[in-house]
Design a protein around this nucleic acid. Structure first.
Lengths: 201, 201
DNA sequence: TTTGAAAATAACAAAAGTTTTATTGATTGA
DNA sequence: TCAATCAATAAAACTTTTGTTATTTTCAAA
């Protein structure tokens, strides 16, 4: 594993945005800001595991962290084996979620990562690079609601998270292209005010 | 169970501090101080369940106690079985809170935070963003009475705490949507004059 | 340069969601 | 029993968000 370290909340936030790590270990006691402030900021676009470290074993803190989007929680002091176990568990969970199959299939729809091709009823559908990337994010989180910010961040980068109109235009194009050929049921659902979601059934 | 008794507020406070009981039953009518003073003092460090006993069936008192951090309330006179039931419910709740599963389940009802989806009998129920947020607050405090102002504050923000009518409209919508499909028992109970509660059994 | 596909922007109608208002029903205490 | 209060429901008015289409800009390859 490759490890990146940040000494402050702001540093961590920008490091996370630029390097998109596979997971984050967050100490709630930061010098410049509360971890409870940082956590929701991260969760606006970061969907991988976040493990939180705190000093006090207070029930309240634990519940708060989990409510704000933490995946797991560890109270200091703790042993390294304990931490390693939690890390492994979190990564395992998040990987099984992603489903690393090279070809993702729902009904007539196929998303072929290895060949970088999308098919409907076996026939290839040409998508532009942006369209493909956007669809890839939905596929990665298939079945779950993906927020506007997450989509924009993963496809256009963190500087574009306010351009929701991009999503509208591109979702429209993707839907139109997938609908070519006959009577395919809509596989992208809109969650008004929140985001979009790939329907798995 | 082991029971400790205290006759005054001060005695109770020091007894609670020294013995850290699993839960506290607090009579609001104390000889030396108001229970409403004692409650926040306890809550500074005590995060386990507190059940409050009141003499008058005054809604104002209930709301005040809940807002100050009580978990539940009971109006005198009450039967011992009733008290026992509340105690069991509170203890069960505080234990299950520790393991905050990503998917919250009560009977046929599932609340999936990670996917942002609500299901009844395995079938997805579409909720709008506001409906989902409101239900999320009830789930977060499941089993406890959540006051009107708490709900309004958490969903609409502190400027809207007087719009109780919002709650009536949205609770109606949520109930209707959850009731789709057949004969699901009501899981949201109304606490007249006080708030709402998610029934855990 | 020219050209063409893709991306970004803009405008506006349609859809969905929210808030407000009015009405009805239920409960409680005088 | 009758007010009075609170809750539930229905529907309207209103607001926000989304989908669609058209247009402009960008950029790289011919």
């Amino acid at each position: 594993m490759q490890v990146l370290e940040a000494a402050t909340g702001h540093e961590g936030l920008s490091l996370a945005a630029s390097h998109k790590p596979d997971m984050i270990i967050l100490d709630i006691g930061l010098p410049d800001m509360s971890g409870f402030e940082l956590l929701p900021k991260l969760r606006e676009w970061y969907s991988r595991p976040i493990i939180v470290l705190t000093v006090h074993d207070q029930e309240e803190e634990k519940v708060k962290a989990l409510d704000l989007g933490a995946d797991d929680y560890l109270t200091k002091p703790f042993g390294v084996p304990e931490l390693m176990a939690r890390i492994r568990a979190s990564l395992r969970r998040s990987q099984s979620e992603v489903s690393s199959e090279p070809v993702f299939t729902i009904g007539d729809f196929q998303f072929d990562r290895s060949a970088h091709i999308v098919r409907v009823k076996g026939q290839e559908v040409h998508l532009t690079s942006t369209e493909y990337n956007l669809l890839a994010v939905l596929v990665k989180h298939s079945g779950k609601v993906v927020t506007h910010r997450m989509l924009l961040n993963e496809v256009w980068g963190p500087n574009s998270i306010e351009h929701v109109q991009y999503l509208r235009v591109y979702m429209g194009q993707i839907r139109k292209k997938l609908k070519q050929g006959d009577s395919l049921k809509e596989i992208i659902s809109t969650e008004p005010g929140v985001g979009y979601r790939l329907l798995t059934d």
